[in-house]
């Protein structure tokens, strides 16, 4: 029993994950790969936040007027996940800079990263 409102959110978030996956597998440009990874992260984060939805619920900050709050745990998890995503992106950019300085190009050679 999923809430009607959540259906488009699930479609959008899983679509973001798939687009990111496609970009990672098909692109050679390191920056595009990093962007694709970010897309995947965003999709997953949207999905997790949607898991905590409750009809009529508000942000879980106690202020006396509301009695129904959305589930706070997914929000806390996503807060952590976002920071982790930022860290990975920053480190990947640093490696991309070094790669560019070493080779003079931002494109990976031949088949790119998904070759076994």
């Amino acid at each position: 029993m999923t809430y009607e409102l959540l259906v488009p959110i699930f479609i959008v978030s899983t679509a973001l994950i798939s687009i990111g996956l496609y970009g990672v597998m098909s692109k050679k440009n390191i920056l595009k790969i990093i962007l694709s990874l970010d897309l995947m992260d965003t999709g997953v984060n949207i999905l997790i936040v949607a898991m905590g939805y409750l009809p009529g619920g508000t942000a879980p900050i106690e202020n006396g007027n509301y009695k129904v709050y959305v589930d706070p745990v997914p929000q806390a998890l996503v807060l952590t996940a976002i920071v982790i995503g930022v860290s990975v992106t920053a480190l990947a950019l640093a490696i991309a800079i070094n790669y560019y300085r070493k080779t003079g190009t931002i494109e990976l050679e031949k088949e790119g990263v998904m070759k076994w």
Partner: peptide, 25 residues
């Protein structure tokens, strides 16, 4: 790449939309 991505999309979207997770905690 595109076919893998589309497959992943279909599986994930189908699973999360039809899943019977008790969303109300």
């Amino acid at each position: 790449a595109a076919s893998i991505a589309i497959l992943v999309f279909v599986v994930l979207a189908y699973f999360f939309i039809t899943s019977s997770a008790p969303i109300d905690y």
